[in-house]
Simulated assay, not measured.
Amino acid sequence: MAVGDLQSQQYLRAAFPNFAASPELHVLQLDPYREAAVVIGMSEADYRDASFLTEALATPERLGAPIPLFRVLEAVENAGERRPVHFIIHQGHTGSTLISRLLDEVGGFGLREPWALLTLAELYDKVGKPDSLVSEAEYGRIRDAMMGVWARRWRDGQQPVVKATSHAGRIGEDLLKSRASSKALCLNLKPEPYLATLLAGENSPIDLRGFGPDRVRRTIAAFGDVTPPMHALSVGELAAMAWLIERESQWRLLHSDGLKTRALDVDFEAFLADPQAILSRIAAHFDMNPGENAIREAVNGPVMNRYSKATEHGYSADLRRQRLDEARRTMAGEIGKGLKWLENAAGKSPYAREILNDAG
């Protein structure tokens, strides 16, 4: 990324007057240590092509520049109108990228896993603690500004939908409480197919161990002493912990008196069984009215037959079933360990038991 060069600065000066209304400048990174934000130029096609709005977008060919964070805050705060921005809160590997891309086809504007949302979640975790970089008021100001940034759209009637990372979904409750017009889709799987899905992935052991320390801390905070230490857990047990703690983030949305009418719970396998009906429900929940013809065209179009995170590769529900069946054969022992871990956690925590029993 040509950060800071003359061409970038000229581009930024030309585009920034429209910052509060247009997604043309994307906030790629929040850097609270430097009190800065990195913004890059993005077209609507760039957003549609991107599976993840992460540092990988910072290429030498893409214009961008760091700017003082206060400029982002003031630009959005001065915009006035607080438009809705909706969220996909998911457990990971539950079809969230596919749903996001399908919504793009029927009136959505997908922002898939914005890097800045992870930074926001990290700030939220520290608020009120002695080592917090920002005060509660400062965190709220940054959060509200980012909600305004993500609420921008290319045209009237388009509905912005942020697909959070599964890890950042932990602040979904805080995000929805901050904007009364925002809604959430809670996308999930039941424990056994979830474990099979995770354990089918080649990189899953690395991901599970990488996120393991934080998930252990979150699990103990939510449920108490329900797990052995991380070093004693197998990959199947780590996958079970991922299911429980990410489902807990959704549970708080689905059972909060102030939020439950704004959260829609969808099982991904139920979606695959009847994609047209479920996509229609999701679109309506997010205040989209594309019509049944548009829904039908979306679920019968190319999006359903491509791997959503790398669209150059083919994928299908049949191929997914084959991979899950293979995982059930080769990883039966680890799946069993994971289910046993959930059973033990439910035996120690009424809250965990309530969540697990609801899954059936």
Rank of each mutant, 00 (worst) to 15 (best):
G333D: 13
L253S: 04
E136I: 03
P160Y: 06
I89V: 15
E192Y: 01
T261W: 09
G172D: 06
A20T: 07
V299F: 04
S249W: 04
L319G: 11
P191Q: 02
M241Q: 08
Y47R: 08
G347K: 10
H26I: 11
G301N: 03
G360V: 10
H26Y: 15
L28Q: 02
I295R: 01
G4V: 05
R155V: 11
P290M: 06
T219P: 05
D214W: 15
W251E: 11
V38P: 06
P68M: 05
Y33R: 15
L118Q: 15
K340Q: 15
S308P: 15
A116P: 07
M1V: 13
A37G: 04
A116G: 09
A184Y: 00
E292D: 14
R323W: 08
A65E: 14
A151H: 00
R83G: 09
R153A: 15
T165N: 13
P60I: 00
R112T: 09
A263Y: 00
H285I: 05
P193M: 02
Q276H: 11
V127R: 02
S249N: 12
R152A: 05
F271C: 00
V149A: 08
I40T: 01
Q322N: 14
I335P: 02
E202T: 14
R101Y: 06
K129F: 12
P160G: 03
D104V: 06
D207K: 13
T54Q: 13
A21T: 13
H26N: 13
R153Y: 11
Y11C: 13
D125N: 12
A15N: 05
A37K: 03
G140H: 12
A15C: 12
R71D: 11
P205V: 06
E326P: 08
L123V: 09
Y315H: 14
A270D: 07
A164I: 10
R215A: 12
L238R: 09
Q9C: 10
R328S: 07
P290F: 07
G41V: 12
L254F: 05
P193T: 01
L195K: 00
R306A: 10
R353Q: 15
L208V: 03
A294T: 13
L324E: 03
G224P: 04
K129D: 13
A283F: 05
S316P: 02
S51I: 10
N357V: 10
D144I: 07
S256K: 10
E334D: 14
Q91M: 09
Q29D: 13
G291L: 02
T227Q: 08
T330E: 15
R247N: 08
R247P: 04
N293E: 15
P213H: 10
